[in-house]
Design a protein around this nucleic acid. Structure first.
Lengths: 255, 255
DNA sequence: AAACATATTTAATCTAGTTTAAATCAACAG
DNA sequence: CTGTTGATTTAAACTAGATTAAATATGTTT
């Protein structure tokens, strides 16, 4: 648990403000509110656990750098990866209703996180309807992605599941500039990928090889390229949830 | 689409107020707010669709009577049931961020729903931080149940999945008095159940028969009895999410 | 009560993905 | 450059659950 307080954190370039400004214009009041909340950033090593099941959660986090996963472990030791987290994500809203964390959160590579107190959510609800709407919306987008995951786990073949999650990652990374020429860095092992879509590492290897042979993707040195997005989309019945988001109903910026 | 407006709906016994009062004390102001929002109730027949994918959502609903399911259909016609909805549920918050519905909503038996306009959420965010916290919390509980579903779909055997969903239903119905002596009415067919946990109806039949032979459950005339909750819980690694909910942080009732 | 439609059970066969294990490949420290 | 560690690939044997289909059971309508 070697969480190093990063003393170099610049208080003026807040992670939260940066993240949330991508979606809506923030008023000065909202920015001041967010600035108050944010603590100095923390670094985490590869495979370091940020919190575990039954940790009493003090903080939520904005991801400044690196990928993380939430996961659970079954009695027999098998693992199910529940959610992937990327730079720009707000992590922890799912656990707000609960006294303890409901899953484990682990860095899959070196990460920088910006914590802010869980209790801040209460302040936001009271002070800023507009920020409230935004945080609610982000949580609901995550939820719809979870429902898509349920769909592929319940009813799809190995190839389809893999195509689907590669597209999902592609969509999410595109939001924050992590994709160019349909190519992105994929820091997940085939174990991680398998645990996310309910397959063994062996099936992941076979499936990816197969997709590559069919010319749908190509891989090299931790990078993936989606060579035929149309066919991948059709194969896995993929829907980009980020494209349909409607923020027109948000309350006006507080004066 | 024979949605019958129920002219007998009593405006003074609001579904929303009744539902939300189960969790927190509502101030007079909050009650007035909710009363304004609610429309007259609607009835739906067995297997009638309330909304479909790509319906432009006008309303959210409180379930007054009957069970419903949200589901999606794959290209090949197979179905995945995403969520179960019971009397007392608020349906539709997942779709708030989106212009169109992301799934289909269908009554599995005759239902009575109380619609309120989707736009009301904006009013609630602006007027009542306390109601906001409640609605957010309910959505996050649903989300954690979705994550549990991902877990069982990704990594559990047929028997374990069935034990898990029977316990999940048990926990939820217990909240609103739908269980006595660990026995409850289960209006879902084995097709429905299978589509919820990623199995065929044949595997559901086999699995339930097996659980019954082992003395873990018993069935008769659309009722299920959980005869050994401890063993079912251990078998499926079940966690009752409703037990860990913490509402102590909610903003005070507005004055 | 008879007739029909719908659900459930049972059984035989088949297959996608698991399991296990060995071989190959890649990354990196010394 | 080499040895070590971890990740990926490949292959063979196995199995849980799918598929298909027929037999019962249950419920509803007339």
């Amino acid at each position: 648990m070697s969480k190093l307080d990063n003393k170099n954190a610049q208080p003026d370039s807040s992670c939260l403000i940066e993240k949330l400004s991508q979606f809506i214009d923030l008023s000065g009041v909202d920015k001041d509110l967010l600035a108050t909340l944010e603590k100095s950033s923390q670094q985490f090593d590869r495979h370091e656990q940020v919190w575990g099941v039954d940790t009493q959660l003090e903080n939520m986090y904005v991801v400044k750098q690196g990928w993380l996963i939430t996961y659970t472990i079954l009695q027999d030791g098998r693992r199910q990866v529940l959610e992937l987290h990327y730079p720009g994500d707000v992590i922890g809203s799912s656990d707000i209703p609960f006294r303890h964390a409901t899953s484990n959160l682990m860095a899959v590579e070196p990460c920088v996180l910006c914590p802010f107190p869980k209790s801040a959510i209460d302040v936001i609800f009271r002070e800023s309807p507009r920020l409230t709407a935004l945080i609610f919306t982000l949580a609901m987008i995550d939820k719809s992605i979870n429902l898509d995951r349920i769909r592929i786990l319940g009813r799809m073949s190995a190839r389809e599941r893999l195509a689907h999650i590669l597209l999902e990652i592609h969509s999410r990374l595109s939001l924050t500039g992590g994709v160019s020429e349909n190519q992105y860095r994929l820091p997940l092992s085939q174990f991680d990928l398998g645990d996310a879509v309910g397959l063994t590492n062996v099936s992941v290897s076979n499936g990816l090889t197969h997709l590559e042979e069919d010319g749908l993707i190509s891989r090299s040195k931790g990078m993936v390229e989606l060579k035929n997005i149309d066919r991948l989309t059709k194969l896995s019945d993929y829907i980009n949830r980020y494209h349909e988001v409607d923020i027109s109903w948000f309350p006006d910026a507080s004066t």
